[in-house]
């Protein structure tokens, strides 16, 4: 039995890691059935990027969903920050018989936001972004408002995002990735520490 202990431990750890890292049901956008209603953050995945004084917002939009171009609004949410009108790319136009000519984004939208700040970096850059979208199948989400903390760097688009309530105050963290890191890292550290402790216990029994 002893020789199976390590493989069993590995197997159980793999299973635990798989369970902890598996996508929760509300994030399974790529495997959702056609009858799912995607949560708004899955239907419209927003990230931001700040580099060389240029702030970019990027929405990745699930298939069958769209965002209205004229419902995108950006405003400053940190001191000494002035945000200009966002530079919106052309979208797909269609004539809605009720709302007239509409321009919407499918698949993705990348928006540049000009800004100037006079705090010399004293405050973390914060902007509030509001947008609204619908599903082509016939329902719409209420306007979504988020406070973003764009992070600079040459890597992928990243951001710290806080959903905001009706008063614009943060109500929750939009990221679950660091929770997964914390859980799995903590578990690994726990197992590792246990193995070291076990090794230390194997002290030679002093002989009289």
């Amino acid at each position: 039995m002893r020789r199976f202990r390590v493989p069993l431990l590995c197997l159980s750890l793999f299973g635990f890691a798989g369970a902890a890292g598996a996508s929760p049901w509300w994030m399974r956008g790529s495997t959702s059935t056609e009858q799912d209603f995607l949560p708004p953050d899955v239907a419209f995945h927003l990230s931001s990027h700040l580099e060389a004084g240029v702030l970019q917002l990027r929405w990745v939009i699930a298939d069958g969903y769209f965002i209205y171009r004229n419902k995108i609004q950006v405003r400053a949410a940190s001191p000494d920050l002035v945000v200009g009108p966002p530079i919106l790319p052309a979208g797909t136009r269609f004539d809605d018989k009720n709302f007239g000519l509409q321009e919407v984004y499918f698949q993705q939208a990348i928006v540049s936001v000009p800004f100037t700040r006079s705090d010399y970096g004293a405050h973390p850059l914060q902007i509030q972004v509001t947008y609204q979208g619908c599903a082509q199948s016939g329902f719409c989400y209420p306007p979504i408002s988020k406070v973003l903390f764009p992070e600079s760097g040459a890597g992928a688009m990243t951001t710290r995002v806080f959903a905001t309530g009706r008063d614009g105050l943060p109500v929750g963290d939009g990221s679950s990735a660091w929770e997964a890191v914390a859980i799995l890292g903590g578990t690994a550290a726990f197992v590792f520490a246990g193995l070291i402790q076990r090794r230390r216990r194997r002290l030679p029994v002093p002989t009289a």
């Binding site: 750890l13 793999f14 890691a17 799995l184 197992v191």
Partner: peptide, 9 residues
Amino acid sequence: LLLAVLAIW
């Protein structure tokens, strides 16, 4: 084990 967990994640 640590590497395995990180790889899975």
